[in-house]
C-alpha cells in the first residue's frame, strides 16, 4: 500500500508489545513506517517485537509509558519525536479487561478499564493531533471491539469504554477531516491472543465464521486504514469479527 513516503514521521502503537498491537506494529513497519512500540510493563516482549521488525529491515523503538499517566504520555511523545519523528500514525490499542457482572463490579474496576481503554486514547489522540494537523496528514486508528456495539455479559465496563471509543472516533474524525487527518476504529471480535486465552468456548460458537481471528487479520485492516489510499475513510468502524457483530 503506502508508508510514510517523504513524510518525516513515525507510527506509534500503544500496547504494542504483544497480541494485536504487536501484529499492527509489524504490519506498519512493513509499510515503511518507523514504529514506536509502547508498552507498560513487558519490556522483553516489546523488545522482541522491535527486534523482529529490525530483522525484517524495518525500524522500531520500544517506548515505555503507562498511558493512564499524563506526564508519562507527554514524556513518551517527546522521546519518540526526538528519536524517530512525530507520530503521524497513532494506533490506540492499549487495553485491559476486568470482567464482572454489573451487580458486583467494583467502581475501581470500572474506572481502571475506562481510564486505560478510553481516556488514555483521548489523551494520546489529543497529543498526536498537534503534529498531524500541522503535517496535513494523520491516521488515528482506535482499536475498539465488537463488544460495545454488541452486548457481552460481564463486560459492562469494557463495553462502555469501547462504545465510547467508537463515539470519540466519529466526533474527532469530523473535527479534523479537512486537515487530511483520518480517525477510524477497528472492532475486533474474538481474536486469539493472551487477552482472550481464558475465555470459554461459548463465545466461539456464536461466531458465524466458527473460528477465532488472528492478530494478523486485524493488523491487515490497520495497515489499510493507515495507508494513503484510505484517505477518504474517516469516522468509520471496521468490524473484524468473523460476522459476530453482523
Amino acid at each position: 500500500m503506502s508508508g510514510p513516503g517523504k513524510r518525516q514521521g513515525c507510527a506509534l502503537v500503544t500496547g504494542g508489545s504483544r497480541g494485536i498491537g504487536a501484529a499492527i506494529a509489524v504490519a506498519l513497519a512493513a509499510e515503511g513506517w518507523p514504529v514506536a512500540i509502547n508498552y507498560r510493563s513487558d519490556a522483553e516482549a516489546a523488545e522482541r517485537t522491535a527486534q523482529r521488525i529490525a530483522a525484517d529491515g524495518g525500524r522500531a523503538m520500544s517506548l515505555q509509558a503507562d498511558v493512564t499517566d499524563p506526564s508519562q504520555v507527554e514524556d513518551a511523545f517527546q522521546r519518540l519525536e526526538a528519536e524517530i519523528g512525530p507520530a503521524l500514525v497513532l494506533v490506540n490499542n492499549a487495553g485491559i479487561r476486568s470482567d464482572d457482572l454489573a451487580l458486583t463490579l467494583g467502581e475501581q474496576e470500572w474506572g481502571r478499564v475506562l481510564d486505560t481503554n478510553l481516556t488514555a486514547a483521548f489523551r494520546t489522540t489529543k497529543r498526536a493531533l498537534r503534529a498531524m494537523i500541522r503535517a496535513r496528514f494523520g491516521r488515528v486508528i482506535n482499536v475498539a471491539s465488537v463488544v460495545g456495539p454488541r452486548a457481552n455479559a460481564g463486560q459492562s465496563n469494557y463495553a462502555a469504554a469501547k462504545a465510547g471509543l467508537i463515539g470519540m472516533t466519529k466526533t474527532v474524525a469530523v473535527e479534523v477531516a479537512r486537515r487530511g487527518v483520518t480517525v477510524n476504529a477497528i472492532a475486533p471480535g474474538l481474536i486469539a491472543t493472551d487477552m482472550t486465552a481464558d475465555l470459554d468456548g461459548t463465545l466461539l460458537s456464536a461466531v458465524p465464521a466458527r473460528r477465532a481471528g488472528t492478530p494478523e487479520e486485524v493488523a491487515a485492516c490497520a495497515r489499510f486504514l493507515a495507508s494513503e489510499q484510505a484517505g477518504y475513510v474517516t469516522g468509520s468502524t471496521l468490524f473484524v469479527d468473523g460476522g459476530l457483530g453482523a
Binding site: R130, I133, R134, E175, V176, R178, R179
Partner: peptide, 9 residues
C-alpha cells in the same frame, strides 16, 4: 474553531 486551535498551537 479548528483553525483557531491550530493558530493557538
Amino acid at each position: 474553531s479548528l483553525d483557531l486551535a491550530e493558530l493557538s498551537q
